[in-house]
Design a protein around this nucleic acid. Structure first.
Lengths: 210, 210
DNA sequence: TACGATAAGAAACGCAACGTATCTAAAGAG
DNA sequence: CTCTTTAGATACGTTGCGTTTCTTATCGTA
């Protein structure tokens, strides 16, 4: 491409490869992504890639991590449901077909590559920008007395992403707006009220038999 | 194996292939499963398989569907939490590593094979024995006045399986007993209470602004 | 019972991508 | 300016793909 004989090295080359991988991912998806194609797109060769990453999954994960979107502020519509709908919709918009195929593909390979499993699991389990947003939204709802004070377990903080990914991967992206609404209205809002109610009574921990 | 030159046909042969596929799946997992290996294990040849199924994913799905376990009766421990824990544990025990890898693998291929996506989606979305069990458990809890009467949306009926699959695929199988407990105590029980509470007030549908 | 259609089984094909090895020459360090 | 590192190019053997071709066992039917 360049025409010159300039030879990139180190971080510059690495970035070029990750960009190429990301482009290739968007162009053909994970299943059809080949190391050779990424090398060609980056204007380099296979050994250069294999020297840096263990295979497709690791390369794609690295490319993904360098392309994580910047999180906007948590929405503030004035109501719990409104905020949650906006948040869920935002997440759903990102869970497009390419993303889902990538996650499924990497997951499939993770079963025999512990380090891949670790990277993926950590990313899926700790979407910190999301958990912050949920905390902010719920905090405001509590401040408005729309919801009793409630302590949110980590699993509940992660749940929006899990729900959307699950729905989007089993039913296909993109999610209909009413599907998102159903996740909010049928699951997440009731869950928050239930948590608050049970914690309010103070009957959960004590009621545990054994 | 047979030594004779007997040549199987039709349903008998099909069953032999599906058995072989299932065995191969348990032996090497989905990622390493090859059509050639299945053919060899079944004592037949590749074209015979390709004449019947479109590829790995379809073959494996067919094998899976023929090996669905028989559902036991819904547990009846006398408490909602007890029943749910038993039910969740049962499901979790089935969501072993092989199962997860298979689902991930088939999912990955589903993105370019609509019919595979349809088969898989339908199976994941409609675990009718499970939804029956949930209905029975919740029905008994309502009868015991442990829970107000509550109408369960389809998404909530599916949720146990979705939660467990999600957890098991992202954190790795098998699930710890305490993880299962957390799914019941932090998510599902609160959700049921929240649903019942909101429906009791009768304020959900009417409160929707637009 | 014999015949003809059907489909199983065996073998080989070309293709694509794998992951590795070898070699050169360019970049950067001292 | 020399030396070490490593990018880039090329080619390798391997595996499994999905398909084609051909033989022949099996089954339905006359």
């Amino acid at each position: 491409m360049t025409g010159t004989k300039s030879r990139r090295r180190g971080a510059q080359l690495e970035q070029a490869i990750l960009d190429a991988a990301w482009d290739e991912l968007r162009a053909v998806g994970y299943a059809r992504l080949t190391i050779e194609a990424v090398a060609a797109r980056a204007g380099t060769s296979k050994p250069v890639i294999y020297r840096r990453w263990g295979g497709r999954a690791e390369l794609v994960l690295a490319a993904w991590f360098r392309n994580l979107p910047v999180e906007p502020e948590a929405p503030d519509t004035g109501t719990l449901r409104g905020d949650l709908r906006t948040l869920f919709s935002r997440i759903a918009r990102r869970a497009d077909s390419m993303m889902n195929e990538m996650v499924a593909g990497v997951m499939g390979e993770a079963f025999r590559h512990p380090e891949v499993a670790a990277l993926l699991g950590e990313r899926l389990a700790n979407p910190s920008p999301l958990t912050d947003a949920v905390r902010a939204i719920v905090g405001r709802a509590v401040a408005r007395a729309e919801l009793p004070p409630v302590d949110l377990p980590h699993r509940v903080l992660r749940l929006p992403l899990d729900l959307i990914r699950n729905e989007s991967m089993t039913c296909g992206a993109p999610l209909a707006e009413e599907t998102v609404a159903s996740l909010v209205d049928d699951v997440y809002v009731p869950l928050l009220h239930g948590l608050a109610g049970l914690q309010d009574v103070g009957a959960v921990k004590e009621a545990r038999p054994a």
